[in-house]
């Protein structure tokens, strides 16, 4: 029998759990932004409900990581595997919370129509952050530091759209003070998406640490 084969199995299991969590979180962002664009409070409520599943899975995987540290005392790459697992988990859980934040903002918007230009920007932003999470997890699966680094460059694009949305909404408020409530919520949403991109970048940094053992700041 190979030494540490049960430990190796546990590490693989944690990794697969993380992919499952990432799928849930990605779906939550998509659904949250779609509910906002369609002004669909029922869809938003569904996103909020699904966060419980994300939190439960997060706690389950975190417990597995803690157990491995306590019982197996991982070293070197194994240690980096477990630490990276915890870092990615934490980022995913926070991203999940931001999906809930977006859903809550949606439930507060009373108007029947959304600012069209802003809606386009938010859709684009959402697509990019989902891509970032997908690419970050892909780099994690393939142990591809270059892909992780490339993914992080998308954060600049997200920041750029965030600045545009900010300007657009300020202009809207100045032109039509009645739009202040919707604009404020949309500003929040764009901020949440911008934060999600930052968390996705953290995932990229964690993947680079896993592969190289070096810490790299990418945002």
């Amino acid at each position: 029998m190979k030494p540490r084969s049960s430990f190796d199995k546990a590490l693989i299991e944690i990794q697969e759990d993380i992919f499952q969590l990432a799928n849930l979180v990605e779906q939550a962002i998509f659904n949250a932004v779609q509910s906002l664009i369609k002004l669909d409070p029922a869809g938003a409520a569904q996103v909020i409900m699904c966060d419980e599943e994300i939190d439960e899975l997060y706690a389950k995987i975190e417990s597995k990581c803690i157990k491995l540290i306590a019982t197996q005392q991982p070293m070197a790459r194994d240690l980096r595997m477990v630490v990276t697992g915890i870092k990615i988990l934490l980022s995913l859980e926070r991203i999940g919370d931001h999906a809930v934040d977006i859903a809550q903002a949606t439930m507060c918007i009373r108007e029947s129509e959304l600012n069209r230009k802003c809606s386009e920007y938010l859709t684009k932003m959402s697509r990019i952050v989902q891509q970032m999470i997908k690419d970050g997890l892909g780099a994690y699966r393939k142990r591809d530091a270059q892909k992780a680094q490339e993914m992080c460059t998308l954060d600049d694009e997200v920041d750029h759209i965030f600045t545009k949305i900010f300007q657009l909404l300020i202009d809207n408020i100045l032109a039509d003070p009645k739009s202040i409530v919707q604009s404020s919520y949309l500003l929040y949403v764009s901020r949440y998406l911008e934060r999600i991109a930052d968390h996705a970048t953290d995932i990229g940094e964690a993947v680079i640490y896993l592969i190289t053992g070096e810490r790299k700041k990418l945002n």
Binding site: K2, P3, R4, F7, P74, M75, A76, R77, D78, L79, R80, T212, G213, E214
Partner: peptide, 19 residues
């Protein structure tokens, strides 16, 4: 040595995968 050893043999030994 215990977080990012450079040599694969060190890595294998300290992570218990030696032999």
């Amino acid at each position: 040595i215990f977080t990012r050893p450079k040599d694969q043999r060190t890595e294998d030994y300290i992570s218990g995968r030696f032999g």
